[in-house]
Measured scan of single mutants.
Amino acid sequence: LRLEVKLGQGCFGEVWMGTWNGTTRVAIKTLKPGTMSPEAFLQEAQVMKKLRHEKLVQLYAVVSEEPIYIVTEYMSKGSLLDFLKGETGKYLRLPQLVDMAAQIASGMAYVERMNYVHRDLRAANILVGENLVCKVADFGLARLIEDNEYTARQGAKFPIKWTAPEAALYGRFTIKSDVWSFGILLTELTTKGRVPYPGMVNREVLDQVERGYRMPCPPECPESLHDLMCQCWRKEPEERPTFEYLQAFL
């Protein structure tokens, strides 16, 4: 395994491009020591290896001592969030954005069929390849993070704006909380990567959403798509659509 080009840095580690087995181009995620327990990670990795779908980033291998390494397929255009905010983002029109959403829903419909939960679905965790191919990455890892700023769910590192209220408040993460996050991801797509709930801080978002506030229809977004977002944001988790439905609708 060779680490060649550093692609990015996040709160919990770095991402590199490299070569595996001398020939395969891969992405390598390294986790800061202390982010998660190697034992817990190894268990999760076994499950992650079983998830194989064309719209999920394929896991190739893991190094399960500290520092933990995760070796996955390489996606040339990086994260969907950076892609939307970058040069190419300007030229993306609604049909392409909807197609990308459908690809993500397709990957998540598979996660749904496998009775698995992602827990951290957002544009930053979707990767883009050639020809606007989108794949879901980092599934299941969020559960293992041991950082206090994260586990408190009120901490600075927790993605509260993407998280369903029952998950943020009571830790009830299910495929239905993933559906909520998918609704937020749809706003990221239609606004080219704007942060959700602009002008609001995490605490406010939690309070307002509890009181029934939902983001309005983004500019140039059809009402039918906003309606779909609002279905994803129904207060009762069981009233939210399935990913199978979302995939078919898109």
Rank of each mutant, 00 (worst) to 15 (best):
V5T: 15
Q9L: 04
C11P: 00
C11S: 05
T19A: 12
T19P: 11
T19H: 11
T19K: 11
N21E: 14
N21Y: 14
T24S: 13
T24F: 06
I28V: 13
K29I: 04
K29R: 01
L31C: 08
T35F: 06
M36L: 03
S37W: 06
E39M: 10
Q43E: 09
Q46I: 05
L51S: 03
R52H: 13
R52P: 07
K55A: 13
K55S: 11
Q58Y: 08
L59P: 04
Y60H: 12
A61L: 02
A61Q: 09
S64F: 05
S64I: 04
E66I: 15
E66M: 15
Y69Q: 05
I70G: 01
I70V: 06
Y74R: 15
G78N: 09
L80W: 08
D82I: 08
L84T: 07
R93A: 06
L94G: 06
L97E: 06
V98E: 06
A101M: 09
Q103L: 03
G107W: 00
A109N: 14
Y110C: 04
N115M: 11
Y116C: 13
V117G: 03
H118R: 02
R119V: 08
R119P: 02
A124S: 07
A124E: 13
L127K: 04
V128P: 02
V128C: 07
E130Y: 14
V133R: 14
C134V: 09
D138V: 03
L141S: 03
L144K: 15
L144G: 12
N148G: 15
Y150C: 01
A152D: 03
A152M: 07
A152V: 05
A152F: 03
R153F: 04
R153I: 05
Q154R: 10
Q154D: 07
K157I: 15
I160F: 12
K161F: 01
W162F: 03
W162P: 01
W162R: 02
T163C: 01
A164K: 01
A168R: 02
L169Q: 07
Y170L: 08
G171I: 04
G171D: 02
R172A: 06
R172W: 06
R172D: 01
T174V: 15
T174Y: 15
I175T: 15
K176T: 14
K176W: 09
D178I: 00
D178A: 03
G183N: 00
L186E: 03
T187N: 11
E188M: 01
L189A: 10
T190E: 06
T191E: 08
K192R: 07
K192H: 07
V195C: 13
P196N: 03
P196C: 04
P198K: 06
G199A: 13
N202Q: 06
R203F: 15
R203T: 09
Q208W: 15
Q208F: 15
V209K: 01
E210G: 06
G212C: 06
Y213P: 02
Y213Q: 05
M215A: 06
P216Y: 08
P218N: 07
P218C: 14
P219D: 09
P219R: 12
P222T: 07
Q231H: 13
Q231W: 14
C232V: 10
W233P: 00
R234G: 10
E236L: 13
E236S: 12
P237Q: 14
P237D: 11
E238C: 14
E238G: 11
E239H: 15
T242E: 14
F243N: 11
Y245G: 13
L246H: 07
F249T: 08
L250V: 07
